[in-house]
Write a protein that binds this DNA or RNA. Sequence first.
DNA 1: ATGAAAGCGCTAACAT
DNA 2: ATGTTAGCGCTTTCAT
Lengths: 343, 343
Amino acid sequence: MTTQAARDPRRPATQEDVARAVGVSRTLVSFAFRGAPGVSKETREAIFEAAARLGYRQNAAAADLASKRASAVGLYLLDIRNETYAEILSGIRGALEGARNRLVLSVAHSSGGTERAGIESLIEARVGIVIGATLLDSEDHVRELSRSVPVVSVARRIEGVDSVYSDDRMGARAATAHLLSLGHTRIAHFTGPSPFGYQDRELAYEQTMREAGLPPWVVVADDYTQASAERLALRLFDTESRPTAIFAHNDQIALGIREAAYAKGIRVPEDLSLIGYDDSRLARLRGIDLTSVDLGALELGRVAGAAALERLRDPHAPAVDVRSEPSLVVRASTAPPRGSRSR
Amino acid sequence: MTTQAARDPRRPATQEDVARAVGVSRTLVSFAFRGAPGVSKETREAIFEAAARLGYRQNAAAADLASKRASAVGLYLLDIRNETYAEILSGIRGALEGARNRLVLSVAHSSGGTERAGIESLIEARVGIVIGATLLDSEDHVRELSRSVPVVSVARRIEGVDSVYSDDRMGARAATAHLLSLGHTRIAHFTGPSPFGYQDRELAYEQTMREAGLPPWVVVADDYTQASAERLALRLFDTESRPTAIFAHNDQIALGIREAAYAKGIRVPEDLSLIGYDDSRLARLRGIDLTSVDLGALELGRVAGAAALERLRDPHAPAVDVRSEPSLVVRASTAPPRGSRSR
DNA sequence: ATGAAAGCGCTAACAT
DNA sequence: ATGTTAGCGCTTTCAT
């Protein structure tokens, strides 16, 4: 054939191109790149040499299509601007290091669009597994979803679905107990709107309060951001009676409360004890020194990533259920209430 | 055919399945789902109905393959645990809202693996464009890369490549000038190892110092993290002569210096003025009150995302070059040096 | 060890 | 308005 056109340099090289350059069939090239047996040393080397010269890269999508598998990992993140999710992502990334699975990302719409849509997009990308951090839908819906694509739920336990999470009840109990032991009685809990499966911190707080014979006092913000918490706390601090201690659902909320307290001249911890959750880097800064519950987000991500890889390997293994124990990190934002005698 | 097997419920439904269910050809199904003209209303509705019933989802990878386009957006992130990158990602996410492009993520290896490898993985995922935030390779290499896949460079200007960035020289000049105007003369600059294209802050600092007739004093840490900066600052503070003001390459470094100062009993701003860069949320907290340069990361991400979409639409448009102006946000971490008269 | 051929789910001419 | 056919780049039997 005299009309064989020169390869267009903008069009990525294919196995066909490599095969032609070496003078072998496409099959050999495919075999060589997957390390399959049955390719002679010389042929293999010639193939790699030509591939490098032509700038050949595998087309992962085409490979997945042809082999009827789905090697990509889909990741659904509730809020990437929250440091905890960044940590989780970082942990997942670490677990995937080495494994050559693509990571397809879907972040919740800021506009509060449904989680469904985000996950649908992952399914259209034909990921082999979806890691959800964190899923807010009902357990039944998640289980239903997991019938079309395997799911790893991070930070929330879902029966029958791979779950990697921290024991929220334990963390919340420790936080509340710490405030109680300091002598506080007027302890409020700040949280956001509780969707499915996320009432554990609140429930454990309430239970611990009741066990101490104290009335729970739950304040619900519009969402889980610092700004909302700050607005709400400002209003709360205007009322006659305010709590002497607050246990917040997360550090962002705690920091929002802290800002509001500053604005009102309420000192932490002298006038108000404050506990957050997540033990983010902010909590550790001097001048912030926020007592917080460490849930080990990085490790959670790492374990979730490993579980995802494992699930890809064996779709029929029983669902894993990994619960880790959080730990309370006491810093300078908590103290006995004013006027109380030291213990 | 009496042997037509029941559809395996685990195998995702295909256009073929939908077509068969409705009794039309695959083409019509394909047309219907892409909103192409030439499908009667009744047929379209029947198709959608059947698709919903069968749980059909498009296979984006197969569609890309067949149509020879690449609609996925690849994103390379240097450090997801740095809030600034999370902001950039968030901005990109916002720009992609509505557009149904998958976002394939590649995060730099914590182990300092090469940026090449990360981007190779995006190419294997056959993304139509790579957004790099931030690329550390040489300009020539990035330009070479951009011949195999279009690139949008975020936070760094690269000649001939779509670039969306903030004017670092301007920001650094403003920061240094602010310290000078307060009366400082012993002003140090803390930075990390400067790879290609990231010396602007340092260079502008040096130039501004020289113009003021003062000797530049650059301190280079192992990397850009808080921990490294803290270690280095601790050593620096042990020496006889220490600066009265420090301009740090970013907030993380500034915060590391701040921790070291606390540890040594050096007060900010009384004994040491401190300026960061990025104006992260940490900088704004009361008790931190870090003077910082705001580079508008969220907006940078938004513009980069829009530029990526535009590039996907028109591969031959001239490269965009969007430079934004940072602004110095003065807070309580900067003050005149001790013993100086007020201006 | 190597190659031919079928097919993955889809799009895109080109019919009709 | 609807159907036929030929690929996209790859893997995977099945031959040789």
